[in-house]
């Protein structure tokens, strides 16, 4: 039984808000030059000070902000535009998170709990957006 379009959109919104919170926290700490609190593992500083924390000069945390904001938009948008945007962003998110996790494990040799949490959120977002892509199109309705 596939959850309804409405339920999937609410889940996606919840994931997006959680992701925004993490990305916002990491962005602020980075901008302030502080080390993020690192609840598990303790590798956050190593990861955030590594050169993989920026791509072409843009902090990866900003990319996270943009991605989660886009997921939130996708959750708010009904119908095809919301479905397509959500699937697109979540696929990019999971793909890039997979690379970053590989970089943490094999290149930086440190794990950052925030980054792993974001990777997990992106994975959930991909599952939700994939279910939404496969869900029956909701009947057009006049009420919102």
């Amino acid at each position: 039984m596939t959850p309804s379009e409405g339920a999937l959109r609410r889940w996606l919104a919840a994931v997006a808000v959680a992701g925004l919170a993490i990305a916002l926290y990491l962005t602020v700490e980075r901008a302030a030059g502080r080390a993020p609190a690192c609840p598990i593992g303790g590798g956050c500083e190593t990861v955030q000070s590594s050169r993989y924390a920026e791509i072409a000069g843009v902090p990866v945390a900003w990319l996270g902000l943009v991605a989660y904001a886009a997921l939130l938009v996708a959750a708010l948008l009904p119908g095809l535009p919301g479905r397509a945007l959500g699937l697109f962003v979540a696929t990019v998110g999971v793909g890039f998170s997979a690379w970053l996790t590989y970089a943490e494990v094999s290149l930086i040799h440190a794990l950052c709990a925030w980054c792993l949490a974001s990777a997990a959120l992106m994975t959930i977002a991909l599952v939700v957006t994939a279910l939404r892509a496969g869900a029956p199109e909701p009947a057009p309705s006049l009420s919102s």
């Binding site: 050169r51 791509i55 000069g57 990319l63 397509a84 697109f88 696929t91 990019v92």
Partner: peptide
């Protein structure tokens, strides 16, 4: 039968292309 959802394939292909670019930039930035 549901009608073919070409947009699903398009979204995934476009997403994978973007991932390729991002990873490329990340590696070459290094």
């Amino acid at each position: 039968m549901s009608r073919p959802r070409a947009w699903i394939a398009a979204a995934i292909v476009a997403a994978l292309a973007v991932v390729g670019v991002l990873v490329g930039l990340s590696v070459s930035g290094g």
